[in-house]
Nucleic acid binder design. Structure first.
Lengths: 245, 245
DNA sequence: TAGTGGTCTAGACCACGAG
DNA sequence: TCGTGGTCTAGACCACTAG
């Protein structure tokens, strides 16, 4: 998936960007309905008085963004939106807390280096047993616990993490930038707080919580699995997005 | 945000794609650390024996994907991942239910055409009062309620919705394809079921629920606001993603 | 000031696929 | 068959900015 740079009339001074926004405006306003055939490249070439490469650049971007479909010998056509895809920004918790105007504090609750258990391997999607680092942390907003973090780090992929105590720096920021990653997966769900989470977040057992789990891979190997638990009233994920995926 | 097409060795037969994947492989494997300067365009031109346009196409895509940063007069550099952005696919509920191997059933609970209340205007982000259609629906997976839907449709933007009863078709699929939309916003959070939601979902009041709210705009005007409530154990949002936003 | 990336041109050849 | 998009070339001028 990709997003279209602009839906407004004309944006960046470049010509291909102007062509792109002209066309996407037509589509998003509904003037060109799904199925409508877009002018051929050679027609747009005349219309804008430019070379075919310039037109092609704009149309290729629209195709990549999923707004149009291009077929050889037939032309380019407006696609109808099918599935919706949102770009969900996941920020560092410290930044999130400070954006709320609250003081941020980090606390490492527990740290254990161990040989991966069967459960660890399930969470990390590891094939074979190996050393892992298990961490438990709390993130505070003001005086109240904001998030509870339970993390596993695959020490085969990140051996230097085994030397770090994570007393003063949270594992998230530590890992970011230090470990290249190529892919990740999120799972977002609501749960009732179990006793452990309730204790960590200072809420009643059974109270609703938002759980965000993230699994990260780098260079084909699992790097880390983390589960953040937020009290229901403390946290909302927000995603802004544009058509088509 | 955009995603890189490929992280594997070489993919599509085209040369610029090969250059792109060669470089992104170097970055994602860690061979080129953040801050590393990428060969100049003219160097890559020699290395691959191609024109500058071809190299430029690959590097531009990498820059758009956020893997590298390009600075005039300095060169191109590997960026360190900063914020993380996930592409969250939002599918039609029917498809989601059927993907679980369960029978899908839709039920319209209530429908009311009315002049927008202050609360309606808040949800839709409407400036002035106007006619809205308020809908309440249930989506079933097998015999159990799967999702509870509360929707407002701005009839000023979609007048023809006022003539639709929504007895046989859910408002989501009805709107998609019929109404062009340019932007939307999601809010995802956990809540305790209130009496109304508990009744609709056949769960206990206070039980944790996942709430997904979506606001949609088309051509500058608010189109619809919808709130889906899922029982905690019935639903997980999944997002797969690649570096950088 | 000099070297980088940003953009554009006016051609070209090719693969694909509808007619 | 032959028009479409996909890709590429070998130049060019410009804007920006580090030194």
């Amino acid at each position: 998936m990709s997003t279209v740079e602009t839906a407004a009339a004309d944006s960046g001074g470049s010509l291909h960007q102007r062509i792109l926004s002209d066309i996407s405006e037509k589509i998003l306003s509904g003037a060109w309905a799904p199925g409508h055939r877009i002018p051929f490249e050679h027609e747009l070439t005349e219309q804008y008085g430019c070379s075919r490469m310039t037109v092609n650049k704009a149309l290729s971007q629209l195709a990549k963004a999923g707004l149009i479909e291009r077929r050889r010998r037939s032309g380019s056509f407006v696609r109808r939106p099918q599935s919706q895809a949102a770009v969900l920004e996941i920020h560092d918790i410290r930044i999130e807390v400070e954006a709320l105007g609250l003081a941020y504090r980090y606390e490492r609750v527990a740290r254990q280096k161990r040989r991966s258990s069967a459960e660890d391997r399930g969470l990390l999607e590891l094939d074979a047993a190996g050393p892992v680092l298990a961490l438990e942390c709390r993130h505070f907003a003001g005086k109240r616990p904001f998030a509870h973090e339970q993390r596993l780090i695959n020490l085969a992929a990140v051996p230097e993490a085994g030397e770090e105590e994570f007393l003063d720096i949270a594992p998230g920021p530590w890992l970011i930038g230090r470990v290249p990653w190529s892919e990740a997966e999120h799972r977002i769900r609501a749960v009732a707080a179990d006793d452990h989470a309730a204790d960590a977040l200072d809420i009643d057992p059974g109270a609703p919580c938002l759980v965000v789990e993230r699994r990260t891979w780098g260079a084909e190997h699992p790097v880390t699995h983390v589960r953040f638990t937020y009290a229901a009233d403390s946290h909302t994920l927000v995603a802004r997005f544009r058509p088509q995926g």
